[in-house]
Design a protein around this nucleic acid. Sequence first.
DNA 1: TTAGGGTTAAAC
DNA 2: GTTTAACCCTAA
Length: 222
Amino acid sequence: MEQQAIQIYGQPLEDPEMFWAPIEQAEQGPYGFLGDLLLSIASGSPRGLQIENFGARDEDDVLILQLLEGPQDQANLNDWLSGDLHPSPLLDTNAHYQTKCRRSGRRGTRKRRTSPWNPMFFKSRVSREYTRRKNNSRWTAKVEILVQGVSKFGVGRWALLKQQFFETSIRTSVNLKDKWRNLLKAYQGNSQKTTQLYLEPSFVEQIRKLAAKQTYPNKRHK
DNA sequence: TTAGGGTTAAAC
DNA sequence: GTTTAACCCTAA
C-alpha cells in the first residue's frame, strides 16, 4: 500500500514514534491548558491523534480524538497542526509555556519538557530524547487506585492491573510497576522525611501492609 | 510481559 | 551538588 509522507510546516516528518505539543483550551483552566496533542506514528504513517490531559484536568486520562487511517486524514492532520481546528501555540511553545504554564510555589504537577514542535526542530535531525521520552507528569489521585489494584491482584500483575484499573490512563503497565516500586521506596521502612508525595498516614499504612504481605520483587507471572 | 538496573529532569 | 520519582532498556 502506498504511504503518504507526513508533512509538518512543509517539512517531511522523518520517522519518530511520537510527537507531542501543548494545545490551549478555549476556556482557560487552571493552567490554560487542555492537554498535550500527540501524534502517533508507526512505520512512517500517522496512526493516531489524541489529547493527553494533564494539569488542568485529570492528568491521567487519555482522550482519543481521532484515528488517522486513510490518505484523507493528512488533510485533517494539517488542519490540526495549523490551528484551523483548534488554537495551537505550536510556533512558540516555549514562550507559551513560560508565560502560561509555569507554576509557582511548592510542589505540584511537574512541568513537561518544552515541546520541540516548531519548524526549526524539523529541519534538523530528530533526536531520540524528544521523540521518545514523555517525561514527568506526576501521579496524583490515581495512586489510590494503584494500591487498590495491587491489593486485589497482588504484586506483579501489571498488565492485568492496567486492563482492569487503568484502561483509559496514560500510564502503561510498566509505569504502574515503576510507581509501585517508588511507593515502596518512599514509604516502606525508613524515614518518610524526604518523600515528595504526601499521602494520608492511613494510606501509607495500607501500602506498608501490602508490601509486607507481598514483598517486591515477586516471582514472575507468565 | 515482568524485574530490575539505568537515565533524566525536577525538587531540594 | 544530592535526592526523588518518572520514564527507559532489556534479559529472560
